[in-house]
Design a binder for these strands. Structure first.
Lengths: 154, 154
DNA sequence: AGAAATAGTTAGCTTTGCTAACTAATATGA
DNA sequence: TCATATTAGTTAGCAAAGCTAACTATTTCT
């Protein structure tokens, strides 16, 4: 599995983008499979956690906007929100003017859980990241930003 | 949403790992949601594609090893392989010596589809990656490697 | 030979994603 | 104004992917 890569870090010219695409794809799958188990431990799956995070930081927000932000269809988001609501992590309220729309906002409990969850995740990931050099963490940081941009355009 | 990051690229010291963890998590979710739609187009979901890829490049391989490689439980892999088999992308054969184990290997059709799929994915991703600089692609390349390492340890 | 371990499967549950079809409310325009 | 469009969200129903528990069939170990 020795990859042809000069120490300088220049990837081979030709199929570079394709190989990078493959590796990113595969890495994302494996990372999420690993993280899901972690998430389960405190009762929030990855999609719920992700949605809650948007509600906490960008909320109050309408269901439709939330679905768009999470790149998911409305029915899927309806169900995610229902789950979060039944866990009392978010609350819904009707819009005053337009009776079709419902606003979703985080409860204090939701906010607390997100923060706590973040700490837990950090504990798991930090112990892994600890074996990396600081420059490598910077690489991941930068990569995460790039991936969001790439993902938006898909 | 302006993040405090000096032009030099040094992330803030304290919560760095935690924030990076958050962003990586979120980016992985969004990337896969986007990619899945692409994958669907030629009939191979992300998990199947990932498994097929291992079979093509590391096969022949036993089901158990494949499950371990993909970080999935055996029943899950049984089902993935059954699906791939019914699509004639892989074939199974019993082990000569040990009758409990079955070997999985890619069919020519599986190999062809993987290569074709790779090209399709490249088309989609390349058009996105095209807007990035070469140095950013290198960042993603390096990040993918790091993420595999991180994921393995979760 | 009998007990324990191993490889894989089956059964059954949950979560997450989708589309299609629906309700209710708002906006348009003839 | 009144009929028609569009929009927001939900419900129903399907499929994929993940899990655990329990099973079969082998192999290995004492």
């Amino acid at each position: 599995m020795k990859r042809e890569r000069s120490p300088g870090g220049r990837a081979p010219r030709g199929a570079a983008a394709g190989e990078v695409a493959d590796r990113i794809h595969s890495a994302a799958i494996h990372l999420l499979r690993g993280l899901r188990r972690q998430d389960d431990k405190w009762g929030l799956s990855a999609p719920r956690l992700s949605a809650l995070s948007v509600v906490v930081f960008a909320g109050p927000i309408t269901l439709g906007e939330l679905a768009r932000a999470e790149q998911v269809r409305p029915p899927t988001m309806t169900r995610l929100v229902q789950a979060l609501e039944s866990q009392r992590l978010v609350a819904r309220s009707p819009d005053a003017g337009d009776k079709r729309v419902t606003w979703i906002k985080a409860t204090p409990r939701g906010r607390r859980l997100l923060m706590k969850g973040r700490k837990e995740r950090v504990r798991a990931l930090t112990s892994r990241l600890a074996s990396l050099e600081h420059s490598q963490i910077e690489t991941l940081d930068e990569a995460a930003r790039l991936l969001e941009i790439v993902a938006r355009g898909l």
